[in-house]
Amino acid sequence: MSDPYQVLGVSRGASDEEIKKAYRELVRKYHPDNYHDNPLADLAQEKMKEINEAYDAVTKGASSGGNTGYGAYERNTSQQETQEFRGVRAAINAGSLDYAEQLLSQIRNRGAEWNYLMGCVYYRRGWMDEARSYYQKAVGMDPSNAEFRQALAFMDSGGAPYVNRSYGSPAGVDMCDLCAGLMCMNMCCRC
């Protein structure tokens, strides 16, 4: 395993406060919300695991250990998920976009969920304009569905929240902003 201090980007003599700060900044960067439906989500997940392990290793002496850390990756699947679309969702999650699209083209019931999943396929492919049109259609057909609304809101806010910070000023954020930001992110991007 690589040096935990190096993973967190702090020196060996760093104070608890510094370590915590570095850790939180990293968590903010690699948080699952930033890699929502991203084809590289698996790499971000690995990175997050590495960061959590490093943080655990560094703080082992101080705390009781076994810190599960922020941002454990769990997919929030919709409760309304229908049988018909289970195969499509599995294909999308596995990254087989062509197969998912083929499955979708065979489905006759082209309601809100069908449009949403088409949007997911295009989003992962990087076809942002089409993806957004499909998400809009899905929300139009079923405005009460939180999953569809979130997907559209995520795109309209310009994608990953971390990206929208101004360049070169990550140090100007205090802990309050950080916590509030994480809370907002949670509200915006998940159920």
Binding site: Y35, N38, L40, D129, R132, D156, G158, G159, A160, N164
Partner: peptide
């Protein structure tokens, strides 16, 4: 919006 999402993708990568 479409450009911002492309930039989000390249930056997250």
């Amino acid at each position: 919006i479409t450009l911002a999402n492309s930039r989000a993708m390249m930056i997250s990568a």
